[in-house]
Design a protein around this nucleic acid. Structure first.
Length: 960
RNA sequence: GGCCGAGUGGCGGAAUUGGCAGACGCGACGGAUUCAAAAUCCGUUCCGGUUCACCCCGGGUGUGGGUUCGAGUCCCACCUCGGCCACCA
């Protein structure tokens, strides 16, 4: 800076540092809830929450804080509109990436994770975000995961009541079984005594047993099998390269692990499961009550995958066995020409014939060894093997062959299907491959379709669909479904059924860096839960925490905790030896309830005090569903975190621990910040800073441009557009932007880029625009030569009677308050900033600024650029922070214009403008319009047919 | 393949219910200031025509059609891009 530069320029470094220190030392944003000092119960509450981040090793790039800045603006705005605002932040610090980072660096994950948290905290605090840092938490804190384990125990000690449709303590199930309110089904389902048709003539249950008929082992197995958290041997996603099993949600479409892109295999393994399927219906139905983006609701509904249909039993020819299938097209039963079992189906061994034994065994072995990757890749061609067995189609007694094929999935429905090749594309393809008969039973209403060539899957009218007892011929598809299902039910051959795609949640991982399960296993292999008083079950200190990875899909899972010291693994109790569970919980566990712990993060007695939960999570006028009032995060969590958290919340709700059925009343997905990346001739990503400078011009390393293209060593450089990230070498650090322009500028720029929910490209070049706005604003308030404040105590002329009209400055202020307030309420920060820029531009060049204009203007700026706003507020003579100052309100009387300008159209084209009194009547407006010179010229020689007057907007004259 | 969303100047975007398309910002161009530059300030900037002093005229929101006095906005078909799901019976 040279000597003659203004001495009192906008110095964001000094201003931002001062205010961040002030906020921290004065605890400006400490929030009091019920039972805390300073709590004001008369104010409405507002809980605004960010999806808490992973403390990754590379730190934040400018894409990460987009949502944090938005919620911070909302939090600050809501404080100024008189709300008690809860705005906390924490860290989701268990999980694979944290562990992998630690393994790569050879340091204990707790050390690396805590370093990463410290770095992220520094970055977040440098953005001036108004979190109540006293509420900060991390999922790896023992005080936190103690309660994660406590919630797990609640699930372990509960079952889902099929009649009441909610979770209840497992003791209630025991009581109901003992009192014969419920019976034990032969398929291990709970059978209510009220089940019609269950009781035989003697009053004995049919297809069910009484509790006292079971021995102790059967009783334990039955109870354990109905817990919401249970151990089961089921086909799971086994990823040998990661050395762990994964949830369905963590496996990509291509059958690879979401983390690391490794192949995943289906293996039957005994693992912890959570009974999320019990909640399928409520998870789907309750979406109606929450204010979420429709796209996210749809993704969840699709994931839950409700479909209505029927279960139908097919008898195996020459055996007592029944094969149960699920179908959504019971109307096509007469067209079922064969059956298919999943290769893993338990009945395969019963239906197989000696001649087919080898072929079936080979096929099963082959299906097993293929990873999901291969299976998906070969999805186009249908494969399968005939078992040799036959089944009887219950509607027409036809003998149809039973096949096995991997296009039938064991995990959905019953793992078996009736194949109707005429009316299902997959069955059609299979039938054509193996030359199986195709019988048409539904006709297209109009078109003629060659059913041998092409399946007809739509709704139509039934044909060929009758037996001696029932006919559904000539019925349209919906009626045909109803009638045949009723007939099946009447005959005891089947029943209507609602099937969900959702599967139970695989809840254990072979990892070190996760929450230990609070359970033990005794020497007979039975599970014993820890008592609440024994929590937390702490992770042991370990030197070697690396997972056991392998290329071999048949390698067994080896949890790292198996290498923990024996003093941790073995527990002696009443002379009995127990071993601890060696698996840990998946990463999602901690994020399922963190929003509740913020409410009361230091409570040592409970996971959360009920009065605080009821206050902060209660429903309000704007948030009828209750829960968090605004939850902001990326759409990538649509079916993972957001589904899991809703499930946990509903369990806690059923058990009376929380007061609302839904955790997040309103959800908002921010868009992504995209960026340009550059590849060289080989397609390798080049650091973006080597290709272009911040101003978009070629960087020195690049030899120049030819047309639109950049060149490097005479090779063309290709520009591609995508997500910002380390791998694309195009990440921009908020640290750099804050250093150069200040964080007020960064905040404004990120909000000014476009709508919050849209994805938009980062352009460092454009930042200067909002930075100029702040500099200009500073000069409107402060004389840069003298440092004196330009704000004066004189009042703008508000009285209409004295002056000829309203002071234009006052009118501008009130117009701006209206615009900014409305934009704030609908999260349109880009247009709110535009309104402030316009007002600011109107203030340029004045020697003085009336206080009555200056103060509301600064208050409107405060949520967006809080540091500069606080600085100016203090310079205007206020000792206290402006964070709790009332938000400015506008007065309609200053918005009323005496005259308005209207556009005049002739045949829909603007031909002139007229200025008329705001209250001018129709006739006067019409006359003025026709008097306009250019309008008159266009009306020359034409007859006016119609005149449309839209008050305050335009006049359209229709003439010909 | 299915579902959802989006296509507006050189660029990011604005136009809340059908009512003056392009607010605001970037960039670009011209000017002032300066020895010079940065910074700052003023002006121009959708395309084309006539005149550039003001005006005026034609075209224009992915393409083609429709509804309407009037369409970026509503309806139909198509094209392109993005996202999600994908053998779920």
């Amino acid at each position: 800076m040279t000597d003659d530069a203004p001495r009192y320029r906008y110095d964001f470094n000094v201003i931002e540092q001062r205010w961040q220190e002030t906020w921290q030392s004065r605890k400006t944003f400490r929030t009091a809830g019920p039972g805390e000092a300073g709590f004001d119960p008369d104010r409405p509450k507002f809980y605004v929450l960010d999806m808490f981040p992973y403390p990754s090793g590379v730190g934040l790039h400018v894409g990460h804080p987009l949502g944090y800045i938005a919620t911070d603006i909302v939090a600050r705005f809501k404080r100024m509109t008189g709300h008690n605002v809860l705005h906390p932040m924490g860290f989701d610090a268990f999980g694979l990436p944290a562990e992998q980072f630690a393994v790569q660096h050879g340091v204990h994950p707790r050390v690396t994770t805590e370093q990463n948290i410290a770095n992220m905290l520094r970055q977040l605090k440098a953005l001036g975000l108004s979190y109540d840092w006293d509420r900060q938490l991390a999922t790896i804190d023992v005080d936190y995961y103690k309660w994660t384990q406590w919630i797990f125990l609640r699930m372990y000690n509960s079952y889902f009541d099929p009649v009441e449709q909610h979770a209840r303590p497992i003791e209630e199930l025991l009581t109901k079984l003992q009192n014969e309110v419920y019976f034990v089904g032969f398929d291990d389902r709970i059978i209510p005594a009220t089940d019609q048709g269950l009781m035989g003539l003697e009053g004995e249950p049919i297809g069910a047993r009484k509790w006292h008929e079971l021995d102790e082992e059967q009783r334990n197995a039955f109870l354990d099998g109905h817990r919401l958290a249970y151990l089961a041997e089921v086909p799971v996603n086994w990823c040998p390269a990661l050395g762990t099993v994964l949830a369905n949600e963590e496996v990509t479409n291509e059958g690879r692990s979401e983390r690391g892109n490794h192949p995943v295999f289906k293996r039957p393994l005994k693992q912890w499961m959570l009974r999320i399927t019990a909640y399928a219906e409520r998870l789907a139905d309750d979406l109606d009550a929450v204010d979420w983006p429709e796209a996210i609701k749809k993704m969840q509904r699709d994931w839950i995958g409700r479909s209505e249909g029927a279960l139908v039993d097919f008898a195996v020819d020459g055996s007592d066995e029944l094969i149960r299938v699920f179908t959504t097209r019971s109307d096509t039963l007469f067209g079922a020409t064969y059956m298919v079992l999943a290769p893993e189906h338990p009945l395969v061994d019963q239906v197989i014939t000696e001649a087919q034994r080898t072929a079936v065994r080979d096929y099963r072995r082959q299906a097993e060894s293929r990873s999901d990757v291969d299976r998906m890749a070969e999805a186009k061609e249908k494969t399968g093997v005939f078992t040799g067995g036959h089944a009887i189609n219950p509607v027409n007694d036809q003998k149809i062959p039973i096949w096995i094929a991997d296009y039938v999935l064991m995990g959905y429905g019953t793992g078996a299907i009736m194949a109707v090749p005429a009316h299902d594309e997959r069955d059609h393809a299979f039938a054509r491959t193996f030359d199986l008969p195709i019988v048409e039973v539904v006709k297209h209403d109009g078109e003629n379709i060659d059913i041998q060539e092409e399946a007809f899957v739509g709704a139509g009218v039934n044909v060929n669909s009758a037996n001696d007892d029932v006919s559904i011929n000539d019925l349209p598809t919906p009626q045909a479904k109803t009638k045949i299902t009723e007939w099946l039910e009447h005959k005891g051959l089947g029943q209507g059924h609602v099937q969900y795609k959702l599967r139970d949640w695989l809840f254990s991982r072979q990892r070190y860096w996760g929450e230990p399960f609070p359970v033990l296993h005794d020497e007979r292999g039975r599970t014993v839960a820890l008592d609440e008083s024994e929590l937390p079950a702490e992770l042991p200190a370990m030197e070697d925490f690396t997972p056991v990875a392998s290329d071999d899909p048949d390698a067994p899972p080896q949890p790292p905790l198996g290498r923990a010291p024996e003093s941790w693994r073995i527990v002696e109790r009443n002379g009995q030896r127990y071993t601890r569970e060696l698996n840990t919980m998946p990463q999602w566990a901690g994020s399922c309830w963190y929003y509740l712990r913020y409410l009361d993060n230091t409570n040592a007695e409970r996971f959360c005090d009920p009065s605080r939960e009821q206050y902060w999570m209660g429903s309000t006028e704007q948030n009828s569903a209750g829960g968090v009032d605004l939850y902001v995060g990326g759409a990538e969590h649509a079916v993972l975190h957001l589904l899991y958290a809703r499930f946990w919340h509903k369990v806690l709700y059923d058990l009376g621990h929380v007061s609302t059925p839904e955790p997040f009343g309103r959800l908002f997905n921010q868009g992504y910040i995209q960026a340009y990346a550059y590849t060289d001739a080989r397609g390798v990503y080049m650091p973006a800073s080597e290709v272009v400078n911040a101003d978009g011009k070629p960087a020195s390393e690049v030899q120049g441009t030819k047309g639109e293209k950049f060149f490097h060593n005479d090779q063309p450089v290709t520009e591609v557009y995508g997500k910002m990230g380390k791998s694309l070498h195009n990440a921009v650090s908020p640290d750099d932007i804050c250093a150069e322009y200040g964080c007020d500028t960064l905040r404004l720029y990120e909000m000014y880029m476009g709508p919050l929910d849209a994805s938009k490209p980062w352009n460092t070049r454009d930042i200067i625009g909002v930075h100029r706005f702040l500099q200009r604003l500073w000069r409107n308030f402060v004389n840069e030569e003298t440092g004196e404040l330009k704000v004066t105590s004189d009042k703008p002329g508000a009285q209409r009677s004295e002056a000829p009209g309203i002071d234009p400055l006052l009118r501008l202020l009130h117009k701006t308050i209206k615009r900014v307030t409305e934009d704030m309420q609908r999260l349109c920060f880009n247009t709110a900033i535009a309104a402030l820029i316009e007002m600011n531009n109107a203030l340029v060049g004045r020697d003085t600024l009336p206080r009555a204009i200056a103060e509301p203007f600064v208050l409107m700026l405060a949520p967006l650029a809080p540091h500069l706003a606080e600085e100016l507020w203090q310079r205007m003579g206020h000792d206290d922070t402006l964070a709790y100052e009332p938000w400015p309100t506008y007065d309609e009387q200053y918005l009323v214009e005496e005259t308005v300008e209207l556009a005049v159209q002739v045949m829909g084209k603007v031909r002139g403008r007229i200025t008329v009194a705001a209250d001018a009547d129709r006739a006067a407006v019409e006359a003025a319009a026709r008097n306009d010179e250019n309008v008159a010229a266009h009306l020359e020689g034409k007859t006016i047919r119609k005149v449309i007057v839209i008050p305050g907007k335009l006049v359209n004259i229709v003439a010909n």
